[in-house]
């Protein structure tokens, strides 16, 4: 018995096929998990697996850098951030956040609209360009070198703008966090009667 002859696929294509089914299945199932998880934290964990599945799809397509970045940024950083936000919110409010599917109808409609818009677009694009037979670059350079070169030459402006945006976001977060604390510090002496010294002295400190 030889699997190779089945369906006119070579062994490599079979492997890719099975790999695609696996990773796409992971992405799909965990995507549904995000939708139908009762607790938001569970949804966030499902989201992590969904992102990992997408990363697997990237790896199958030979986009190894994208695979690494997907895991590093989305699975490693974004998922952690989401889980952290949920964690802190749940502890702050003192009860678990439940997610209900109240907008099921609207969601289905908008997803359907997305498919209706995107499918012809993709179809036209594919019809115009032809199905890509080879996804990995064949220029002799590695993916990493190619992407690095593009970042520092053709897409330099976009690259730098992105980093500036991230920097602004970071500084903004710090400023917001600091501003809140300063207002607290200003209110505190007034609550104690206003006359208290701002800097606690040695005598005022309980031993």
């Amino acid at each position: 018995m030889n699997l190779v002859q089945y369906y006119g696929l070579t062994a490599e294509q079979w492997l890719e096929y099975v790999g695609f089914l696996g990773t796409a299945g992971v992405a799909l199932v965990s995507g549904l998990g995000v939708l139908f998880a009762r607790r938001v934290l569970h949804a966030a964990v499902w989201l992590l697996f969904c992102l990992l599945g997408v990363a697997g799809l990237f790896a199958l397509m030979g986009a190894h850098v994208l695979f690494g970045v997907q895991i590093l940024v989305y699975a490693g950083a974004i998922a952690v951030m989401i889980i952290f936000a949920v964690l802190l919110l749940e502890r702050a409010t003192g009860r678990g956040i439940l997610s209900g599917n109240r907008h099921l109808f609207a969601g289905v409609v908008s997803a359907g609209a997305f498919v209706v818009v995107m499918a012809p677009t993709l179809g036209v694009a594919l019809w115009a360009a032809g199905w890509p037979s080879q996804t990995a670059p064949t220029t002799g350079q590695t993916n990493v070198a190619l992407i690095g070169r593009l970042f520092l030459t053709r897409h330099l402006l976009a690259f730098e703008l992105m980093s500036v945006v991230l920097l602004v976001a970071m500084i903004g977060a710090i400023v917001l966090a600091r501003a809140e604390r300063r207002s607290d510090a200003e209110e505190a002496p007034e609550a104690q009667g206003g006359g208290a010294a701002h800097v606690p002295t040695e005598e005022a400190r309980p031993s």
Partner: peptide, 15 residues
């Protein structure tokens, strides 16, 4: 992308 992969995957452990 060996090194990138290594760093990326070690981030999952944190989860």
């Amino acid at each position: 992308i060996g090194l990138l992969y290594l760093v990326a995957v070690s981030g999952i452990g944190m989860l």
